[in-house]
Write a protein that binds this DNA or RNA. Structure first.
Lengths: 170, 170
DNA sequence: CTCGACTATCTCGCGTGCGATGTAATCGGG
DNA sequence: CCCGATTACATCGCACGCGAGATAGTCGAG
């Protein structure tokens, strides 16, 4: 009876039929993210870096010195992910960690000479990524805003849901 | 002598400045994908499913019976990811695996009664996801195409790069 | 029929992501 | 000054994601 139910209104923000569409979009997001990471893998493998490791190095190449917390915030990751990641980068001789004097809880992260030098070998990567994605600059700019919106809304929703689960925050 | 060589034609799809922009977009993609997955986590946790497991179940809810290969193709994942995932779903009593009679290499995957029944408890999820993403239906539709383009281009690029690395496939 | 190529699947190892939990340092109210 | 809350960081455990490699089963040329 609803065989022609795929007829949808353009003015409705999100309602009846938009759920399945949004779900498909989530899968697209998931698949696109993995495929882009795989491009990074082909580019970063010769340097002995993974994509998240590259992101951490990029933070340090911008700031020269940082803390674990600053990196966590900038990459929107968690301590449980970043902590071992920094440990591996330190083991590879790319950075150093030491407790801060002014706040013994905090850990300062700095580049080693080797870590600083690695930057030069990554300078071609952004352009290669641009080429690999196969979309024009205008589309890129438009996409940026939408993806930020999605990330912010979804993060807020998840945080709300978790707070609800964590029995009645008094 | 080529100091102003960074001057390019505007009709070139992607060139000089678009690299860094594209790289930022990749991070947006990465962050958005993780945030969306975290929404799924809050919705799927009560059902004892992860997002990839939910995707597999969704395939079976559509097809009733499938093979490992078909699932791998449909989700754009690899055997090494799907194989243990199916094993866990089987251990949880949601599906069954058995070798095919007509082709002993192939493994048929079917739903158990419990797996079929689980579907009802997921019917609210697509709409919840739509709500969580906070974007209108028109944007969703537009995004779908762009994300497919990115995924396809990136996958092709990565495959090309890997083929190049795998010294001269004769 | 035979043998090598191909196919479908599985296992292993490593690096994330992230929930849960632990620990030490700092802060703030009484 | 003291103690409970908060902060910064770490470890543990589990489930991906994927490269590398192993194992059967099937197919096609000769």
């Amino acid at each position: 009876m609803d065989s022609d139910a795929n007829r949808r209104r353009a003015d409705a923000p999100r309602d009846d039929g938009s759920g399945p569409l949004a779900a498909m979009l989530c899968f697209d997001l998931y698949a696109a993210s993995r495929s882009v990471t795989s491009v990074y893998r082909t580019l970063l493998d010769p340097l002995g870096l993974t994509y998240p490791q590259y992101l951490v190095m990029a933070v340090l190449w911008r700031h020269e010195e940082s803390t674990v917390r600053a990196i966590v915030d900038e990459l929107r990751l968690d301590y449980n992910t970043v902590s071992p990641l920094l440990k591996r980068l330190e083991a590879n001789g790319l950075l150093a960690r030491r407790r801060r004097a002014d706040d013994e809880r905090s850990v300062a992260v700095t580049l080693t000479e080797e870590g600083r030098a690695l930057r030069e070998r990554t300078l071609h990567i952004p352009d290669a990524i641009g080429e690999a994605m196969g979309i024009d600059g205008e589309t890129v700019a438009g996409l940026h805003g939408v993806l930020r919106t999605i990330a912010d809304s979804a993060t807020a929703y998840a945080a709300r849901a978790s707070a609800g689960t964590a029995r009645t925050a008094h």
